[in-house]
């Protein structure tokens, strides 16, 4: 087990690009030919989301398969919407929302997220910004922390698996650009998984604007020094839980499990490190359409599912056991169908 780290193993890069790898719109490989791999055991076959291994990899139970003809239909509908986006957003938002709830087709997802988030408009209005930020040196204070985080974002995803590969390089560019865009905010470690998820679906410049939108519009103040906004949302989640599921609420109170103990990673990373990948994508489809209330809802569903009845609480009589349950959520509560339905 000790040898499973950033070793000297170099796999031949061709074998990593198996069929079924289908991320982003272009399917471009991110593997630098000379790059060192992050190091991981076992199978090198990618799942349909680009994962080679790890807990978030595709499993038949965690995901719903959409029949090809339905997918084709949806793609056409999304193409139609993207062509006339302003009209759809202002006049037929309910329809857009419904289609986000049904799941954005994988081939459309990158563009759809950029449109939904408003990143597209920002990018067009500030067409020179990213290039300019990208060409500047970052503040060493932030560059140092960012560099230490590059190899530990989704190390089981083919895009980020190789040290110094294109995925990690782009991640650096996006995060560094943000620290120059908002020097008052700098870099928060929870931004890295957010940027990485975006990069799995779009090029660096688009991902940068997506990140800007998430940090400023969707989760404002979450990543700022002091982290007050996310702590406040923790309190709000807790009081919502009182209404939604008082059994769970009382249990958490009784064992002094403060919201920051379980919801920081959920909220700050928008569940990207918590759920199986099919569910992450569906949650993000809805999150980028409807905003933070989706994150609250998912949080409440999970709490209710895990701690919502006396029977379930018997299994976690103490603070630690409860934390365990919250950390290792039962797969059946994270299935995309279950979450979306709830």
């Amino acid at each position: 087990m000790a040898d499973v780290e950033n070793g000297d193993q170099t796999f031949d890069t061709v074998s990593l690009q198996t069929e079924g790898s289908r991320f982003g719109d272009d399917g471009e490989s991110s593997l630098g030919s000379d790059s060192e791999l992050n190091g991981f055991p076992g199978s090198r076959e990618t799942d349909k989301y680009g994962f080679i291994g790890g807990a978030q990899k595709y499993t038949a139970e965690s995901a719903q398969d959409v029949p090809p003809e339905v997918l084709r239909q949806r793609e056409l509908k999304w193409l139609e919407m993207l062509k006339d986006w302003d009209k759809w957003i202002s006049k037929r938002f309910k329809k857009v929302r419904l289609r986000c709830q049904k799941g954005i087709p994988p081939s459309m997802r990158g563009r759809a997220w950029l449109y939904l988030s408003g990143g597209k408009v920002k990018k067009e209005r500030n067409s020179a910004t990213f290039k300019e930020l990208d060409s500047r040196e970052g503040d060493p204070k932030w560059v140092d922390v960012i560099e230490r985080d590059l190899h530990r974002q989704f190390p089981f995803h083919e895009m980020f698996v190789s040290r110094g590969g294109h995925g990690q390089q782009d991640l650096f560019r996006v995060l560094k650009a943000y620290t120059l865009y908002r020097p008052d905010e700098g870099y928060c470690q929870a931004q890295a998984p957010i940027a990485a998820v975006l990069l799995m679906h779009m090029p660096a410049e688009d991902a940068f604007w997506g990140l800007v939108q998430i940090c400023e519009k969707y989760l404002p103040g979450y990543y700022s020094a002091g982290l007050e906004a996310v702590q406040l949302d923790g309190e709000i989640l807790h009081s919502l839980l009182k209404r939604v599921c008082s059994v769970a609420y009382r249990h958490l109170d009784k064992h002094k499990i403060e919201p920051v103990l379980y919801m920081m990673e959920w909220f700050m990373c928008a569940f990207s490190r918590t759920l199986p990948w099919a569910s992450v994508l569906r949650v993000w489809d809805m999150f980028l359409c409807d905003g933070v209330k989706i994150i609250f809802r998912v949080g409440l569903v999970l709490l209710k599912s895990m701690l919502g009845s006396r029977d379930k609480l018997k299994a976690c009589p103490g603070q630690y056991e409860t934390m365990e349950v919250l950390r290792a959520i039962e797969p059946r509560y994270m299935q995309e169908a279950y979450l979306v339905h709830q």
Partner: peptide, 17 residues
Amino acid sequence: GLFPPGQGATIGVDFMI
């Protein structure tokens, strides 16, 4: 007894027994 490669940054606090 694990050494997870690419262990993500801890967000907040966590505990083990």
